[in-house]
Simulated assay, not measured.
Amino acid sequence: MLVFEFKAYGKQQQFSAIDEAIKTVQFIRNKALRFWMDNEKVNKFDLNKYSAILAKEFPFCNELNSMARQSSAERAWSAITRFYDNCKKKVPGKKGFPQFQKNNRSVEYKTSGWKLANDRKSISFTDQKGIGKLKLKGTRDLHFYQITQIKRVRLVKRADGHYVQFCIQVDRSENIEITGNSIGLDVGLKEFYTDSNGVAVENPRFIRKGERRLKKSQRRVSKRVKGSKNRGKARVILGKRHLKISRQRKDFAVKLARYVIQSNDCVAYEDLRIKNMVKNHCLAKSINDASWYMFRIWMEYFGKVFGRITIAVSPNGTSQECSNCGTIVKKSLSTRTHVCSCGCVMDRDWNAARNILSRGLSTVGHTGTWGNTLNACGELTATDVEVILHRQVDS
């Protein structure tokens, strides 16, 4: 599944109609969730039927396309199934009970309710919300794909305007030459990662560099009166600041992941639990700013596209174990140099990267580069491309 995004251009009344459609989606999603809470043994099809009942009961729901209403109900069901799965897997802590949505920013159409122009430079929405024809501006060319391959069309509202996303069903695969290289990666906060060859990539620290402007924009929002137009303008400026940092992170992760995958036939990396690591309030901001999880997701994606092997291994003890002789050398987090009795002296992260590579190469039962990957401890790690693409909408 590919997601192409275009900037939408139109009149102010069209954008107001898009905002109204987004509010309708949030209303249907929350009503479907309440219907599930109040009734027993409710399934996905019951929520789809309930969306049709809401259309008869509320005129503004009837103005939205029928498939868009079904997509809204499916969003509620997605949160419900995620809660059920966490309960079955006995995930420690909170299981993620579905919550009512307060700030929805997208509306999703399926195969009806929209019509793409022949020149692929504009799109018209044919439901009764009054969105009409929107001009599209972007770098992607939709002429390479058939209309039947477009399975979803999303209207997304962001701080700098409205966007149109096309979800195209196609299997992407590219053939590149074999390099014969294998690499292990140890991510960190000082350097973004250090590989098993001793090469370190600098951590860009985007939020640290833009923190001064963020704080200034936040102070402006705080000083404005709630509900005033000036406060609304200040919020838009603050949103643009955060959006720029988010885009910088994604651009850095995508380009670096593509380079790493194309330069190596096998890539081993740590199977980190970021959710647990950010519980340390002293390091939470720096860990989130590094965006290790996004880097890993794109490495796995490009591993599938280019036919490379990606292996997630357990990080336990990789910094303590000597990569030369295997001796355990205890060291605190502040100790940045690995010194072993065998005479091995090197940077702590370099030593860990070498251990990660050796564990990855010795993994038994590796089954693929995407979806099902066995780490060094025999645990199954999975990444669902549909979930990641859905999260991109609100990122």
Rank of each mutant, 00 (worst) to 15 (best):
E20F: 13
A117C: 10
K23P: 06
V339F: 10
D349K: 01
L54T: 00
S173P: 05
F83R: 04
G317M: 03
C322H: 00
K215S: 12
S319G: 09
Q218V: 10
D186M: 02
F97A: 09
F58K: 11
R152F: 10
A79R: 03
L47C: 03
S122Q: 03
T194E: 00
R241V: 14
G138M: 04
D38K: 15
G343L: 03
D347Y: 02
Q14K: 02
Q99K: 13
H338K: 05
H390D: 14
G130W: 01
I287T: 04
W77G: 03
I28G: 00
T381C: 14
I274A: 08
N48E: 12
V153K: 00
N175H: 15
C340L: 04
G96T: 08
R208Q: 09
I123L: 04
N39V: 12
K41T: 12
L33M: 10
C340T: 01
D347A: 08
I261F: 07
I18D: 00
M1F: 12
A68Y: 01
A253T: 10
Q26H: 04
R354P: 05
N175K: 15
C167K: 12
T327I: 12
K223P: 08
Q165P: 09
Q262Y: 09
E270C: 07
K90Y: 08
D195Y: 02
S358G: 09
A234H: 03
R208K: 13
V260N: 08
S319E: 06
P98L: 04
R212Q: 14
A79I: 05
A55T: 02
T194G: 04
H281I: 12
I311S: 04
